[in-house]
Design a protein around this nucleic acid. Structure first.
Lengths: 355, 355
DNA sequence: CTCGCGATTTAAAGCGCTTTAAAGGTGTGG
DNA sequence: CCACACCTTTAAAGCGCTTTAAATCGCGAG
């Protein structure tokens, strides 16, 4: 019995029950003008009684517009997870449904995208796609595509991203503001995002006249980069008083490494992450980090897709959102020796926001 | 031009190009018997040339069977993420496609499930559903439903889960084996899973004649529970020599708390987690933990669904998988005073696997 | 009592693909 | 040279729903 009970009711079934045509029922259920109030009521009642649920597949096929947004993500990324949640909200507000397709170690972005296209998604939102730009461009010529979180310029794609360089710069500013001058950076490897963040660090250091203090430690986007960096820094004769990292995961690894080495954070070394991930918000971590405004990215991605679909826009658009520094307890003014330097710097820098 | 290029090619288009009927093309593309080798070749060529991709919506509608499995998950759970990856593989092997639908803070399981059903999924795989058993049972009467990771018995549902109690018991056995006797447990709050794990601990302790050493610290499924527990344990006069935790997140919090308190792990306290999450595998964490065999859960979930769909089975089935202890470096024999105890215990227990 | 008109409802043509009975061609044995 | 069997291909009927032109129905106006 389970799973094969009785066929699910169709439009025809509720029509028969009420004694009207399927067309009428369809009109009532889609809340379209035409049917009289009395009919509406009877149809609604019958539909409820039978537990009728429209078959979306048939509905999509018959309808011109599918009102379906395809989202490609990496289900293992906590950052994507947050974005997806926001995307659902934004899409719903715009009257669209969302279909999810994930990349996995055995399912590449090509497969993931194909599934979405085959399922009649009208537009695609790709979260940090790893596909080559050329392929994305080709895709964008066939269907509206919004790329989220990756910097690229293409004649056929919309892009929504966060100003990664400015985010890191804000972190550096904050540290300089606190009085730091020896500020190191743990890199995130190759890749455009990592490149942007690194150059944000470099530029900010230059702007503060700290060119000679620049120190970039090699890394990758995982905790391991952080622990490696910690070892490196602690082994050094002159460790920096602050470290900015490519992302929260690196920062977490770094924090762990420093803790094990007996280095006090933020007492001896301040640490800044990037992403404002759930882990950064944990009370025992309480990491100063840069928030990427997932809500804003989701809203803009949906808006971009909808504009394309409505034909309101046909030229590519790039939306760059301003990241926001979230100050927590992993950063503070440098102690003792460094503190002297501080007032000197403060005199030349923007007014301090520190207590 | 982007997004509205030219209509995507239909079956009819490739049929026209080859000069055959749509029926023939359909047969070729679905690799069904009938068409001659020559025709096959020409059709394939034309399809490739036009970049034809079948419209899954239409295909689903026309086909009796949709070969679509709906998976409900919480996109923010790393554990679900792993399961989803495995589910994709298992489903593909069985000739099914997967549709994902997530719960979010603003999208409850009812919504998530509706989307899947409306999209013609033939069966549902629900990862740790929070819906009341009654609702799930009703659902199971309409469509094959496999519940993963939640213990429940219902006349209409299949269940795939891991023997949580035995997993924790294995952790306790391992510790006893190493010579520990004062083994505490950090709880995961209410909920059936937490209950199972807790009772696994209690039973194992009893089995080893350690009833009087039982110590359950209150908690929840997050890192916070671990840090709280750490404070509690360190403050105590007699801290245990080993702690088993509800899951890896709790263990991570605990490790952090112990580290900050200057407690050496595993020197002074051994720690065991649960889930074998990616974080547990990080080199600087290297947590002894219990693996839930996500691969096995995914395969069994898909198998259960397929059996139902093939009509090969109509009675509910519960599959309970054996968890596997993964020994890493967060556990070792207790030192000094405890070490004496150890040989005594070892004499009575299974041969030690410690170096 | 007939007409015309607005308010409702319906009939029917798809949406793009699958599937199966039947048609069309070929080749073989009688 | 015909009948028959076999191999290919096609025609056509849906799948369940949307949509729009056209039909229907009242009803008051003329």
């Amino acid at each position: 019995m389970a799973g094969s009970a009785r066929r699910r009711p169709r439009l025809e079934d509720v029509a028969a029950r009420v004694g009207v045509s399927t067309g009428t029922v369809s009109l009532v259920l889609s809340n379209a003008p035409g049917p009289s109030a009395a009919t509406r009521e009877r149809v609604m009642a019958a539909a409820a009684e039978l537990g009728y649920r429209p078959d979306r597949t048939a509905s999509l096929l018959a309808r011109r517009r599918a009102h379906l947004l395809g989202v490609m993500l990496d289900v293992r990324s906590t950052f994507h997870a947050e974005l997806v949640a926001e995307l659902h909200d934004a899409a719903e507000a715009a009257g669209y449904d969302v279909l999810l397709s994930t990349v996995t170690p055995t399912r590449d972005s090509r497969r993931a995208i194909e599934t979405l296209v085959d399922s009649r998604c009208e537009a695609l939102v790709l979260l940090g796609p790893d596909a080559p730009t050329a392929r994305l461009t080709t895709l964008g010529e066939q269907i509206p595509v919004v790329v989220v979180g990756r910097r690229l310029r293409s004649a056929s794609l919309d892009v929504v991203r966060s100003a990664d360089d400015r985010g890191v710069a804000a972190a550096v500013d904050h540290l300089v503001d606190l009085g730091h001058r020896d500020i190191a950076y743990v890199d995130g490897g190759p890749g455009t995002i990592a490149t942007d963040r690194r150059s944000g660090y470099l530029r900010a250091m230059r702007r503060h006249g700290l060119d000679d203090r620049v120190r970039v430690l090699p890394g990758d986007p995982s905790e391991v980069a952080g622990t490696t960096a910690a070892r490196e820094l602690v082994g050094t004769g002159e460790p920096p008083t602050a470290v900015v990292t490519y992302n929260d995961r690196v920062a977490l690894g770094l924090l762990d490494g420093l803790l094990r080495a007996g280095v006090d954070v933020p007492g001896e070394v301040s640490v800044v992450g990037y992403d404002d991930s759930p882990s950064a918000q944990l009370p025992h971590v309480d990491l100063t980090t840069v928030s990427q405004d997932t809500r804003g990215q989701a809203e803009n991605a949906v808006r971009a897709a909808v504009e394309r679909l409505d034909g309101a826009r046909t030229t590519p658009r790039e939306v760059v959102l301003e990241p926001r520094l979230v100050v927590r307890r992993s950063t503070s003014a440098p102690r003792a020796r460094a503190r002297l330097t501080r007032s000197a710097v403060n005199g030349a820098a923007a007014p301090s926001t520190a207590p």
